[in-house]
Design a protein around this nucleic acid. Sequence first.
DNA 1: GTCTATATGGAGATAGAC
DNA 2: GTCTATCTCCATATAGAC
Lengths: 246, 246
Amino acid sequence: MPKPNAAKKNTSVKRSGRLPRRGVADAAQVASGKAARSRKTQARILDAAEELFSHHGIYGVSIRDIADAAGVDTALLHYHFANKDGIYEAVLLRRAGEINSARTRALDEYALACGGKPSIEGVVRAYLHPVFERLLHGGRGFKNFAALIALANNTELWGGGTVKEYFDPAVQRLIDLLRLVLPKAREEDLYWGYQFLSGALTLSYSRNDRIQGLSRGRCRANDYAAIEPRLVEWCVAGLRALGTRH
Amino acid sequence: MPKPNAAKKNTSVKRSGRLPRRGVADAAQVASGKAARSRKTQARILDAAEELFSHHGIYGVSIRDIADAAGVDTALLHYHFANKDGIYEAVLLRRAGEINSARTRALDEYALACGGKPSIEGVVRAYLHPVFERLLHGGRGFKNFAALIALANNTELWGGGTVKEYFDPAVQRLIDLLRLVLPKAREEDLYWGYQFLSGALTLSYSRNDRIQGLSRGRCRANDYAAIEPRLVEWCVAGLRALGTRH
DNA sequence: GTCTATATGGAGATAGAC
DNA sequence: GTCTATCTCCATATAGAC
């Protein structure tokens, strides 16, 4: 069994402070060609890790696999990210903030735009759309990230706490709005609703394509254009039902 | 990366034919004390593997871990199951048939009992109840198995084909009945409905307990008594919505 | 059927040259 | 910042004794 965390003795974890942060790079870094190259290398490493992790899970991938896929030496991975956990964490953090602030923003904008009259459908759509937008137009990297999240979401691992901080606020904002639309709903039913929504959503962008075989080709697991409107209808109906329980 | 399958050269995989099959054991096996002990040992190995796999995934667990947890030597695991893939497969197959034939049976019984007038709720309940029954009263082994299925369900691994044969018939029976209840539904919408149901269901018995933190303790992820009725309502409402799309 | 002993490879990690 | 060389440990797997 992998030791709970081999990075206990790891003092250089804060190296992740040197991760590519678009727009926050200081002058010295921008000026230096070496630093720019470093950021590119790190991005390539993270891209490779993201893809491999999403297919095989953390333990199914070795540091050497990642290094090979990125076309660099394993020592470089240790230099930039200290150890495997550091790579994994960096992969998650790279996109977790972006997608979740997009979600919160979409919910806030809807709350304003609906003129004090929010609907279940409007709220659900606002929460879901940022993900589907990126699944449809965000390129391969985001799809890999999403598949990795799907995997993590069915484990207790789930990013060990750091990631929660990025994902939870958007969920709480979602629940807040649902509470407004369904004032008679019991508190716990709103959370169960989110749980069911979350399960369907993550399976949608996981790497499980069972539905293709089951439906004899009628549905393809990653046909996001087909999924989004149906998932919205599904969740709206479910939330309405849960929100009006006796 | 783990070689796609280290068991290519593995000729003794059919040793799994010697797995505990209640009621099919031949006289020689029943008579022998050694064989009985062997079956017990195998069961202990599978119990340990089931638990560990469900927590850490296949690659997160070593054969030594399993052997230690089961209190036997690693050589025994190779003797009984040839290799790690053999153990994994045996873990899945041990329960896959049982739960899925229970599902099919429940659906068949409902189809008879409803007197030609099935309801969405009746069908969904028949499909879901066998799992929740076992989650609530089946002991720790079944919970571990379920959590492992949840993990596998978000991966492309998914038992490499053998397991599908056990799970798919029950799903097809479910879809058949839903087609009767929702005659105007488009074929693909029924399958999408199953996909969403499946995602919510597997998350319910996964090891992810995020909902506890999110709801500040109001919900606990494995409170199956709370989940079952809500999940039924959720899916019934969703299926009705999907089944009446324009 | 079970355990001891051991072969062989691959894992994560680091020191030090460039 | 990147690569070479190498250390140490643990993984899977098998042969053979009991």
